[in-house]
Design a protein around this nucleic acid. Sequence first.
DNA 1: CGTTAGCACTCCAACAAGGTGAGTGCTAAC
DNA 2: GTTAGCACTCACCTTGTTGGAGTGCTAACG
Lengths: 342, 342
Amino acid sequence: MLDERKKLILQAIIEDFIATAEPIGSRTIARKMNINISAATIRNEMADLEHLGFLEQPHTSAGRIPSSKGYRFYVDWLMAPIGITDKEVALIKKWYDERTRQVSEVFQETVRILSHTTHNVALMVARKDAKDIFKYVEFLPLDARRAIMVVVGKNGVLDNKIIESSKDIIVEDLRRVAKVVNDAFAEKRVSEISFEEVNALQSRLLPDAAVFESFLNVLRNTNKKGSSEQLFLGGATQLLNQPEFREVERVRSLLNMLDEQKLMCDILHRSDSAGTVITIGHENKFSGIRDCSIVQADFRLDDETTGKIAVLGPTRMHYGKIISTIDFMAKYMAELIKRYAA
Amino acid sequence: MLDERKKLILQAIIEDFIATAEPIGSRTIARKMNINISAATIRNEMADLEHLGFLEQPHTSAGRIPSSKGYRFYVDWLMAPIGITDKEVALIKKWYDERTRQVSEVFQETVRILSHTTHNVALMVARKDAKDIFKYVEFLPLDARRAIMVVVGKNGVLDNKIIESSKDIIVEDLRRVAKVVNDAFAEKRVSEISFEEVNALQSRLLPDAAVFESFLNVLRNTNKKGSSEQLFLGGATQLLNQPEFREVERVRSLLNMLDEQKLMCDILHRSDSAGTVITIGHENKFSGIRDCSIVQADFRLDDETTGKIAVLGPTRMHYGKIISTIDFMAKYMAELIKRYAA
DNA sequence: CGTTAGCACTCCAACAAGGTGAGTGCTAAC
DNA sequence: GTTAGCACTCACCTTGTTGGAGTGCTAACG
């Protein structure tokens, strides 16, 4: 497709632009490349590359900058894989160590670290598909008028709630409710308990309607809580350090997009393909980020929980570094969560 | 302190500046105020007000802008109380309705709404002081090798955890552990269970050391989780709409501060006084926000949970409106949380 | 004595003009 | 195919000019 020299020149241009964010001219390239070619020759090659769509000119007599297509070619064919160094790994582990104590903190800290190491916005969606299976309900006494209803699923407690009564609680009543419910629903998947089944029980439990209602609420809640999708976002500040966001207008429009949680989830779910996916500039479906690139990877925490982790920034980003960082983070995070959950 | 006319002029200047963000001159004021005073007179008065420290001049022959002291006087003496309208209340309630389903969402949504209605950054810290009292521990069977340990406190389940064993679990063993632990710790405040007491039990439970260890872990965890402080933050985007943040540099320095969770907590906790507190410009202890004001109120959710809710923005803010909004939000949020928890 | 008109002065902001430098495309020679 | 040379373009910086908004001061007025 491209001869060897064109590839070299394209690579040199892109890498220089990634480093400096300045349009780059033929002389500079001639000076930087080891090959002894004159600026004039490079000028000719650059004109060719522009006609082929790999480069763009902001205006006549400025240097060239890479187009989306140019970056795509670079990422697919030219880019040298840049691994993550031991030092960086150590730093990341240190950050986690210092700031996370429990599972719930790991997600937020992950985007924090990822945004700091990549100097771009980091985001993550974790999606939990409830596959909870109900086992039994048990009532634990608290005091005369209160008891705790504990709903147990196949993999532990699904939820618990205090039952309060205006008159003294009779243990026998609770035990009866438990028995009926347990007989009816045991081993059922929570998300599949139907309206009809519930109705059928309702009449039998009329004297304890309140308790039964509470139980249903807990179930519904579990289901809702179980199948959730959570978005984490960090490092908007990082963007401000990028020269492409020197004007407030650009910053604002992007920040506004990032505020739209639903939209961001959609963007991340756009690619169903597994593994690491890179979307560059115009390849984005959403016009608001046509001048940005997204590098994303997916991860799996357990049977129920999967997610995507991504870095978003200007098309001019260190693709190689970001890819290896994100891959490492996805794996390490999953590992960490397992460790904390144990 | 100030004669009636000076007050009127000061008020006019401040309100104009809040509206336009432009330094304001004598002629403009003369035109806007109903009173028939010439621009020259106003000039004299303005010179006085500047000498008294209520106004500042960005440079000679620009208009005047209010100083921190000027805003302080305005807030304390001049400002007309601006209530929150029924329409606004309705809007806020609608937003909550649309986006919150459970307690955990209320906090985040509160800062979202607050930042949108005030067009400034909203933040909130919720602090929970653990006063949990241990009642008993109970083991619920799950399958042959697993059981759930449920730790019950005075106000419900403190925590639960799955106990896993390599050999079949003997119910009697668990019951024995439960009895020993319950006898020793019942009615004790979790945060006050001492190292010595734990040691004393350890020897008696040697055969079931693993289970006991798990129990201790849960206790420790409860304690840690119980006494937490969480920061919520929203609406950084709003800042970008303010003319004082037209240059990226200012935005960056502020966003960097906002990223420092610990610092922000400190700032909010600075004022121990209850009720609504306003800190204007130079009154701030932290130099990074010397050109910002903070309006904060505190709230109480229950015996254990208290917090602060605040709006942060340029000194040029609609103090009256923000105060009434924040007061309303603090109350309404507490109410909402009670409702969801019930 | 407070108020006002008038005036000279200051300073920012916007605009225009000219110079500079990096870069290009084209052509002709190697 | 490669290269040197040259005319040309365009952004950007510097400098100068102008206009307007605003001030402080002074002198006159009721």
